[in-house]
Nucleic acid binder design. Structure first.
Lengths: 113, 113
DNA sequence: TAATCACGTTACCCGCAGGTAACCGGAGGT
DNA sequence: ACCTCCGGTTACCTGCGGGTAACGTGATTA
């Protein structure tokens, strides 16, 4: 019996920006926020309605974190009642294709049942 | 279609493609596993070394979950000592571009400081 | 005989994301 | 006078992913 001590496949080059980027979209809801902001700014209540099943508390927490991380930009609108608008920053826009790729796979999963 | 006058109609259980796909790559380590399997099968110990900072217990748990979800395929090799090889399934291969997109953003993050 | 290796398992603990529910504050509507 | 709307906040609880450490198995090696 031939010993198989080393794999034939050489280890891929060491890169770990994966963790860096994953920390931006970690959490169950962050990708949804980015996805629903992809076409332009949206208000808190709109995001709340867009993202089914999210609670106000968690949505607030995710938006705050995304704002701290420089992914989204928060803008208060002096209307009555006052509303708040969220939009993707330049960094957030760069995340869009990544989220789109994930959504794309999700669609194929659905089609396949 | 009958219109209900007073009670709120429950929205149809529309499956969110984003949530579906995110459930596959959720967790801190799942994307890393997929990423390091992108070029071919790898052994448990190799993955353990590739993915710095992961413990055996957690790596086992992630691999088991990915196997249950049909993302990776586990194959025991009758060597001495017996080794185990993991590879991406067809579904796992479809996830590759999504992970690659995330890694790509990570690269840009690093470059931008 | 004893140690090592590969691939785990089990026990125990911890932190945090997320869920529910209640509440708030100013302005407009009725 | 009261209710509604919008965008939150706060308190409390729960579950799960993850960390360390110790142990198991079966076969080879010193």
């Amino acid at each position: 019996m031939v010993k198989l001590r080393r794999s034939r496949v050489e280890p891929p080059p060491e890169v770990c920006p994966l963790g860096e980027c994953m920390s931006l979209i970690s959490g169950a809801w962050s990708p949804h926020v980015i996805w629903y902001l992809r076409d332009g700014p949206r208000r808190f209540g709109e995001l709340r309605a867009d993202i089914k099943g999210v609670s106000a508390k968690v949505l607030t927490a995710r938006l705050r974190q995304l704002e701290r991380d420089g992914v989204v930009i928060r803008r208060e609108v002096a209307s009555s009642p006052p509303t708040v608008e969220y939009a993707l920053s330049e960094l957030g826009a760069e995340l869009r294709p990544a989220i789109a790729a994930i959504v794309d796979v999700g669609h194929r999963l659905k089609r396949r049942n």
